[in-house]
Every structure is written in structure tokens, then in C-alpha cells.
């Protein structure tokens, strides 16, 4: 069995091939999903990759959330399908209301592009099913608007519910609670600012992102095996 992962492409997305390549090396099969197509074509999981969807005009993700594919992604997520948003994809998922919070401009007002140290705070999500609690990873970030913002009461609720999936050990952007990644209540929708696909081959300087992508492929296979494919 091969896990089939849909990779959503908006105008301005620029990490779709990196994600597809990384998933392919780990034994998955990526299928590009154009944003105008409201059909997910029976994939077992969906990735919203990084980039600048619709030019990031107005706000990152503000326009992308209204693309036709997003209705299908919301239905897929509601049915328990694994959905992961990386960087710009995380911004799209928060704008779409599929994940709590929002991503604001970095505290430094600088574009940050470097490896950062992370800690896995929550296992059992579609992105961390094969990771260990407390595991430390080095994965690059690459963003201008990556500061996680949420009202204090909601952050408290997310912490209590275990919805903070990844936390920065060195906060690169001013995120509240050092949050690097969050999930929905069910754990099947996860967003993160770091790029696991850029730490998936020794040539890239590290392979710590592999455990996250492997977790996603495993979640996709689980879904496929359970006959839930649409």
C-alpha cells in the first residue's frame, strides 16, 4: 500500500515540489491538487505547503481560504482526514478557521530563514504519531509572518487540551507560548511554521523532519486501510 497525499497548489505556492519529493523518498505518493478544483481525488491525506498563496495580499492566507479546494479540505478534515499546513499552509488553515489562532508579523520585523530547535509536545497527532514526547528536532523556518497569536484564555485552553504540538526551544519570531505548531481538538489537522520537507535529506543538512513526514504517511495509510477513502 502506498499513502497518497494531496498537495494543494495555490497561485504563489512554492514548496509543493519539495514536499512531494520528500514524501516520495519516504515511500509516499504525492498528487498535486490545484486550488480551483473542489475535488480531492480520493487522496488519503492533504498537505497545504509553503509559499505565498495569492501573493499573501491583504494577509497571508486571507484570500486562499476562499479558494474552491478549501471547502473540500474542510469536509475532509471534518471527516477525520489527515490535514497538515506547513508555513503558508498553516496561515491558510488558521484563516480558514480549521485551526485556532493567527500568524502575525515577526517581532523582529525581519524575514527569518534558519534552522530552529523544536520540542515535540504532543504525540498522537497526524504529524507526530511516530515521534516521542519531548523529542527535540532541528527544522528550518522561513517566514515573515510566523508569530503565533491567540488570546491568553484560548492559549491556556490549547495548552490544557494538548493542542500545542511543537514548541520552539529558541523562539525565532515572538510567537506566544513559543508555539511552533498546533492541532485541532481531534489531532487530525496540524499546522506548523517550520518546514519538515527541508530537513528530510542529509544533503539539506539534517533529517529531523522525516519523523514528522513519516507520521503523516502512516496516518494516511491508516485512513486508507480503514476504507475511509473518498
Amino acid at each position: 500500500m502506498t499513502a497518497r497525499v494531496g498537495v494543494v497548489v495555490f497561485p504563489g505556492t512554492n514548496c509543493e515540489h519539495d514536499v512531494a519529493e520528500a514524501l516520495g523518498r519516504l515511500g509516499g505518493e504525492a498528487r498535486m491538487l490545484w486550488h480551483q478544483d473542489p475535488d480531492l481525488h480520493g487522496v488519503d491525506a492533504v498537505v497545504l505547503p509553503g509559499g505565498f498563496a495569492h501573493g499573501d495580499y491583504l494577509r497571508p492566507g486571507a484570500l486562499a481560504r476562499f479558494s474552491p479546494v478549501m471547502g473540500a479540505v474542510a469536509d475532509f478534515a471534518a471527516a477525520g482526514g489527515p490535514v497538515v499546513g506547513i508555513c503558508n499552509g498553516f496561515q491558510v488553515l488558521t484563516e480558514a478557521g480549521l485551526l485556532p489562532g493567527a500568524l502575525g508579523v515577526n517581532r523582529s520585523l525581519r524575514f527569518v530563514c534558519r534552522p530552529v530547535r523544536l520540542r515535540v509536545e504532543r504525540t498522537g497527532t497526524v504529524l507526530t504519531g511516530q515521534a516521542e514526547a519531548g523529542q527535540e528536532l532541528v527544522v528550518p523556518v522561513n517566514h515573515f509572518s510566523g508569530a503565533y497569536r491567540v488570546d491568553p484564555a484560548t492559549l491556556e485552553r490549547l495548552e490544557a487540551a494538548g493542542q500545542v504540538v511543537l514548541r520552539y526551544l529558541e523562539n525565532p519570531n515572538g510567537s506566544q507560548g513559543d508555539v511552533a505548531g498546533v492541532c485541532n481538538e481531534a489531532g487530525n489537522v496540524v499546522g506548523l511554521m517550520p518546514h519538515p520537507e527541508r530537513a528530510s535529506d542529509p544533503l539539506q543538512g539534517g533529517t529531523d523532519g522525516q519523523v514528522l513526514l513519516r507520521s503523516l504517511l502512516a496516518a494516511a495509510l491508516d485512513r486508507s486501510a480503514s476504507g475511509a477513502r473518498r
Binding site: 491583504l58 488558521t94 489562532g101 493567527a102
Partner: peptide, 8 residues
């Protein structure tokens, strides 16, 4: 609906 993100 579009111009403002109510979270922030």
C-alpha cells in the same frame, strides 16, 4: 468576512 482577521 475578508478585510479583518477577528483573532487579531
Amino acid at each position: 468576512r475578508l478585510l479583518a482577521n477577528a483573532v487579531m
